[in-house]
Design a binder for these strands. Structure first.
Length: 483
RNA sequence: GGCCCCAUAGACUAACGGUUAGGUCACCACCCUUUCACGGUGGCAGUAUGGGUUCGAAUCCCGUUGGGGUCACCA
């Protein structure tokens, strides 16, 4: 049987990085096995629906390079792929369970349930499960009474009838055998009083109908998997294979959440290189063995397997992500870098510059920044006039006494036949020998004049990019102020 | 609290009974050097704990401790 997996998010806002990783693993698994990737939108909670969330979800998946084979707007034989459009299906299957005596109606109000919980809580066990024997439902009420309540339009839900004292065993591809006694499983609501299904019902029905072979999802679903198993059994359907992925964690090891930093993929999209981000996320919880760190999408597909997915959660630490960004930044072409830099300039409302020039700037400083967007801060002097001279640097490397020495060097540099690295370097070295000073003695003052900062790329490379005219202007300007 | 899952350095991880426990990020030092980086070399730092099983355990089993997840008419 060919592999078919699904990513089934709720359209409740942005795409969470944890969700993206789940989607990525599903995708890698599907592609590795020549299978299909389904996108299903789980929008059964109408109160949490967010406009445009679906489009955003899809946009982010596509940005990450995750291709969808079946889903809303992607075609496929098992549609529709949006649960709110499958409404009738769930009612039909719920009724099937009702008829088979594997589900029942319940008429309890929110207050009654609340009461029930406080009552159970005060008991010895701390058991919050639905007390089916003492509540208002079709198990405790007479048949004609139930009929009447429904006919009167009394709000009601459908609950699944969990078998008593039965061991629910399922095999998880990552965790091995997991066993839970049905005593621990609640009589889960299948159909809410608004007629919509809950996640559990919709999920099981859809996974079955869509012929999903592997359910790969986050570990937070592990505790409710027995419910799903009970449903598969009640319907007499074959269960898919389950794989519960380790969670992505905050620094304090709790489930990754918004409170402790960005978790929206769109935020990362703004800052990070796509391939760097995917590479990083792929290796959070999975590793193909070996000492390599850099993998492109095709390699990830080729190497991915569920057996090597870890069991323990992984802290989402952006420090390493920054390093990945640096690695991928080095691989970009000058043109790609220049285009990013141009975008950044625009964002900062800085003057536009010729692409050719920006390319040179990027090549000059790329191994000194983790992000292209850092360049305007790292080397503002490449993108505009010098606004200040770093105080400490000035104090350390400049005194008025240096004026004659520097003036003559400036004159020679200005007249260098080629305003390039090599001749200027040679010229300056020769000058230092002649004057019997170390190269450092003149390079620091030069850097000060040209950049105003103590850090930066090689001096003559920097001057070459800036050009003869600009450098000449800056050197003269400096002498005028401090000479 | 009940149930479930998990446990290799600060972080990500390798090891699938036999290694001086390997790699990467971060941090530190040195080399390179024209400052800062890059690069190179080296360093810091780990099998939570107690028992078993075994000739031999990070690896298998049990207990303990610790952490997490989950217990909704949310997914």
């Amino acid at each position: 049987m060919s592999v078919k997996v699904r990513f089934a998010p709720s359209p409740t806002g942005y795409l969470h990085v944890g969700g993206l990783r789940t989607a990525l693993y599903n995708y890698l698994f599907a592609r590795h096995n020549g299978g299909k990737m389904v996108l299903r939108i789980e929008d059964t909670d109408r109160t949490r629906f967010v406009e445009h969330a679906q489009e955003n979800l899809i946009k982010m998946l596509q940005w990450a390079g995750i291709e969808i084979d079946e889903g809303p707007g992607f075609g496929g034989d098992c549609g529709p792929y949006v649960q709110s459009e499958r409404f009738d299906l769930y009612t039909k299957y719920a009724n099937e369970l009702l008829d088979a005596g594997k589900a029942y109606y319940a008429f309890d109000t929110a207050e009654e349930l609340e009461e029930m919980r406080t009552r159970l809580q005060s008991g010895t066990k701390g058991d919050y499960r639905y007390d089916r024997k003492n509540m208002r439902n079709s198990l405790t009420l007479a048949a004609d009474e139930v009929e009447k309540l429904i006919a009167d339009g009394t709000p009601h839900v459908i609950r699944m009838l969990v078998p008593e004292n039965e061991n629910i065993i399922f095999h998880d591809l990552i965790r091995g055998e997991v066993k839970i006694n049905s005593q621990e499983v609640d009589d889960q609501i299948l159909i809410k009083s608004d007629g919509f299904p809950t996640y559990h019902l919709a999920n099981v029905v859809d996974d079955h109908l869509m012929k999903i072979t592997h359910v790969i999802r986050g570990e937070e679903w592990l505790p409710s998997t027995p419910k799903h198993c009970i449903l598969y059994r009640a319907f007499g359907w074959e269960e898919p294979l389950f794989a519960h992925l380790p969670l992505l964690l905050n620094k304090d090891k709790t489930k990754l959440s918004k409170r402790q930093g960005s978790v929206a993929v769109e935020d990362f999209k703004l800052k990070y290189n796509r391939d760097a981000f995917v590479n990083f996320v792929a290796l959070l919880g999975w590793n193909p063995s070996g000492d390599r760190e850099i993998y492109d999408m095709n390699e990830l597909i080729e190497l991915f397997n569920l057996e090597k997915v870890n069991k323990a959660g992984a802290v989402f630490d952006t420090q390493k992500l920054d390093w990945y960004n640096f690695q991928y930044l080095q691989k970009l072409t000058p043109k790609e870098m220049a285009s990013e830099l141009a975008d950044e300039l625009k964002k900062r409302e800085m003057p536009e510059m010729p692409e050719e020039y920006l390319e040179k700037v990027c090549v000059l400083v790329k191994e000194r920044v983790n992000f292209i967007a850092d360049i305007p801060d790292y080397a503002p002097y490449m993108l505009g006039d010098i606004t200040e001279y770093e105080e400490k640097y000035l104090a350390k490397h400049w005194t008025k006494e240096k004026t004659p020495l520097m003036k003559e060097l400036i004159a020679r540099l200005e007249n260098s036949p080629e305003f390039n690295y090599e001749p200027m370097h040679e010229l300056t070295k020769a000058y230092c020998e002649e004057k019997e000073v170390k190269l450092k003695e003149v390079i620091h003052p030069l850097r000060l004049m040209i950049t105003g900062k103590s850090i930066g790329a090689g001096m003559f490379e920097t001057m070459e990019v800036l050009g003869r005219e600009e450098c000449s202007k800056r050197m003269k300007n400096f002498i005028e102020i401090y000479g």
